[in-house]
Design a binder for these strands. Structure first.
Length: 424
RNA sequence: GUGGGUAUAGCUCAGCUGGUAGAGCGCUGGAUUGUGGUUCCAGAUGUCGAGGGUUCAAUCCCCUCUACCCACCCCA
């Protein structure tokens, strides 16, 4: 048997309905903030990610799906989308367009990691980029927007953590101080942290081992090293969030996995996700466009939601979304009734109802199926009905059945249930 | 890349100190020629993950492999 490749999976109904639900919500929210969709290729020149994401990141170092094309060039399946968006921004001279560039995307990304709960080799992200402003109010607006997507998707108990990682002026000073401190007292830390001290000192700050905490407490905080510009920028971001009523936790030890972040970084975590509790991450990247060859300075801020994880959280909060139901299940009795039902069903469908017509089977069997499919109504079409021009409409929940004229069907169905609420 | 767990029917899982398999759900038909949900009856479905070893005999014990899950690293 041929199976899906490790770390990839099929999304089947009814779960695919939850995916559609969160994507629909995201599109609505993006539209309300005036973002337009950008669709970039799924593979790019390897150099784009090497330069854009950062040579020293794990993503570039060991997780990319890279392959050689027939002409010998090196291509890579996109491990994230910000680099591609900036590449497109530069390539199409979007900096020359009026106003800010506000772009969103959704789609699959690829990283060759060991799969586990909430982590796949092909996974999907929903993200957005706001390019062309350094305004801290923009940072706050982007954060507000992404939280709006979460809450309108049905998530309630998520937690926003916020930090500033400084700029190319002040971060090196902090890194220097951090390395110095680690050189002094690093020997008291766990083996992992000793390794991190040289490979990725920032990660030491994020260590969860209780025994290491006393030492970690004494390590310098980035917030104490911010330059004047970064300090006021961060203060204004916080003020704007406060004024919007957005609650957050400032976590000076919040570390992001990509090299391009400057100033504001943020992350949202949610329980129910296992060890991978981060449902989205984002931040500002003021130097990225120039690093990728832009002639004009094009500061930006963006985020990306782990759609797989968001869906997982929404499902745990709203199991009902996984129960999709047909509105009307039509049970024709005999060939003439079936031909009649086809046209009747089409009318109801055009009226916006979710309708299924049983092509074969005895009435008892058909009603059984209607029941198993959670049909709200069964509509029985037999000789009596066709002759009289009325149909037996059966409410599958209450069991009540009444004869309804053709033109009154929709009214009866909607009258009882309002509009349909199917996720998909 | 490293560690742990699991692998038996379509699904969820039982299966004792070795004697080649069971339940629930689902599926098919019937009790009921035009009425589902609750009952009742009957039925179909397994290379017991793969390969090798021990044994008279292996789903069970041993070895190897593979897949999946969880965790580490790291991240969405």
């Amino acid at each position: 048997m041929i199976r899906a490749i490790k770390g990839t999976r099929d999304i089947l109904p009814p779960e695919s309905g939850v995916w559609n639900h969160v994507e629909r919500v995201a599109r609505e929210v993006f539209a309300s903030y005036n973002y337009g969709e950008i669709r970039t290729p799924i593979f790019e020149e390897t150099a784009l990610f090497a330069r854009g994401v950062g040579e020293d990141t794990d993503i570039v170092g060991k997780e990319m799906y890279t392959f050689e094309d027939r002409d010998g060039s090196s291509l890579t399946l996109r491990p994230e989308n910000t680099a591609s968006v900036i590449r497109a921004f530069i390539e199409h001279r979007l900096d020359q367009r009026p106003g800010l560039q506000k772009l969103f995307y959704m789609g699959p990304m690829f990283r060759r990691e060991r799969p586990q709960k909430g982590r796949y080799r092909q996974f999907s992200q929903i993200g957005a980029e706001l390019i062309g402003t350094e305004s801290p109010t923009a940072d706050a607006e982007v954060i507000e927007m992404v939280l709006e997507i979460l809450s309108r998707s049905g998530l309630a108990d998520f937690h926003l953590v916020l930090n500033s990682v400084g700029c190319k002026e002040c971060r090196p000073k902090f890194m220097e101080a951090l390395r110095a401190r680690l050189a002094e007292s690093g020997a008291k830390l766990c083996a992992d942290c000793q390794r991190r001290s040289t490979t990725n000192p920032l990660r030491v700050l994020d260590c969860k081992i209780p025994e290491d905490q006393p030492v970690i407490e004494t390590l310098p905080s980035i917030l104490d090293y911010l330059c004047e510009g970064c300090r006021t920028h961060f203060a204004t971001v916080r003020q704007s969030l406060d004024e919007r009523g957005v609650t957050y936790e400032v976590r000076p030890r919040l570390v992001r996995g990509l090299d391009y972040y400057t100033r504001t970084t943020f992350e949202v975590v949610h329980g129910s996700l296992g060890a991978q509790n981060s449902v989205l991450g984002g931040g500002r990247y003021d130097g990225l466009a120039e690093a990728l060859g832009s002639k004009t300075r094009s500061p930006g801020i963006g985020f990306s939601i782990g759609e797989d994880r968001l869906v997982m959280s929404v499902e745990s909060a709203h199991p009902a979304l996984l129960k999709d139901a047909v509105d009307v299940y039509i049970a024709p009795m005999g060939d003439a009734a079936l031909r009649h039902s086809v046209l009747l069903g089409r009318e109801l469908r055009r009226g916006g109802l979710r309708v299924e017509i049983a092509f074969e089977g005895k009435l008892k069997r058909v009603l059984e199926t209607a029941n198993k499919l959670n049909a709200r109504f069964a509509l029985i079409v037999g000789d009596n009905e066709m002759a009289a021009g009325v149909y037996a409409l059966k409410d599958m929940t209450s069991g009540e059945q009444q004869m309804v004229k053709r033109e009154d069907l929709e009214q009866h169905i909607y009258g009882k249930y309002g509009t349909t609420t199917n996720a998909s």
